[in-house]
């Protein structure tokens, strides 16, 4: 871990999970990492001229072009004779799973040497909490309201990890800012790989989720502990899962701490529990099969 502070003086909300994800990754990667951030919370809070908050080389990319700009930077640095560096992207869930998915797919397909980190706060938080394709079922956002007869987001969260893994990427993982050592270890693992790697880190947004800023870490831990956010790694196409969920019964309490789920009916909660169980079963099955 780099002892210096790579990301400071920024204007992120108190308790921002995304800012923590960026800071810890850059500490793990050191000063020869080049940070690339598209439109989103972290670029909005970190790059306000003249208050520029990265100790590393860093750039705001086009919104849809995070991964392709990473490709260009890596090629440009190689052309200038630089070796032993890593280009790391930090894109939100919308920047990754919606508008940036084409560029991400292209870069993985090309086998470009990069670490792509999706800090997943489950919505377009920078623009005031709108639904993205990584917003979970049931969550209230400003575009999936819970008022009148409406009960929040009726669509399931896109399975971005497996979409990425299906490209045959050398390394893809989920992580959580609730388990920072695990996250940092995965960033370091990704750094050691020549080629593309992808880490989707759960980064709670107290502002958008309707929670107290002091609860960020707890929320990020609970999501793992109750099985909603399984820690998983694809290495060379093989899936391995982290520890079994500590206490699946935590789920309802976990959701109850977040105002975005306050409106859910018992039926909604059952659906979320069943969805979690199905997802975990499927992943366990796949992980077991690949162990044989």
């Amino acid at each position: 871990m780099d002892g210096g502070e790579p990301f400071m003086g920024h204007r992120a909300c108190a308790g921002c999970g995304g800012a923590l994800a960026v800071r810890i990754a850059l500490k793990a990667l050191g000063r020869r990492a080049v940070a690339v951030l598209p439109a989103g919370c972290m670029s909005a809070v970190g790059f306000n001229f003249p208050q520029l908050c990265f100790s590393n080389n860093a750039i705001i990319s086009t919104f849809a072009g995070t991964a392709s700009m990473m490709t260009g930077i890596a090629a440009g640095l190689r052309a200038r004779g630089e070796r032993d560096f890593k280009v790391v992207g930090f894109a939100g869930d919308g920047g990754t799973a919606d508008i940036g998915i084409q560029a991400l797919s292209g870069a993985i397909d090309r086998g470009d040497d990069m670490i792509y980190i999706c800090y997943d706060n489950e919505g377009y938080m920078n623009t005031g909490t709108q639904r993205s394709s990584l917003t979970p079922y049931g969550a209230r956002t400003t575009t999936t309201p819970a008022a009148g007869g409406a009960r929040g987001n009726r669509l399931e969260k896109k399975n971005m990890l497996e979409i990425v893994a299906a490209h045959g990427i050398p390394y893809a993982a989920t992580a959580s800012v609730g388990y920072l050592r695990d996250y940092a270890r995965k960033v370091e693992k990704a750094a050691a790989i020549e080629g593309p790697s992808y880490i989707q880190v759960l980064a709670p947004c107290p502002t958008g989720w309707g929670a107290d800023p002091s609860e960020t870490i707890d929320l990020a831990r609970e999501a793992v502990d109750c099985g909603l956010w399984p820690l998983a790694e694809f290495e060379g196409g093989r899936l391995s899962l982290g520890a079994e969920p500590r206490d699946p019964s935590l789920l309802r309490a976990h959701l109850a701490r977040q105002a975005r789920f306050a409106h859910l009916t018992d039926g909604d909660l059952r659906r979320i529990e069943e969805g979690r169980d199905r997802r975990l079963d499927r992943m366990r099955g796949r992980a077991a099969k690949e162990e044989c």
Binding site: V34, V36, I59, S61, T62, A64, G65, T66, S68, M69, M70, T71, G72, I73, A74, A75, G76, L77, A79, R80, A103
Partner: peptide
């Protein structure tokens, strides 16, 4: 986007 990245890197 890629060309911008390369140019930002000085190529």
């Amino acid at each position: 986007s890629c060309a911008i990245g390369a140019s930002a890197a000085g190529a």
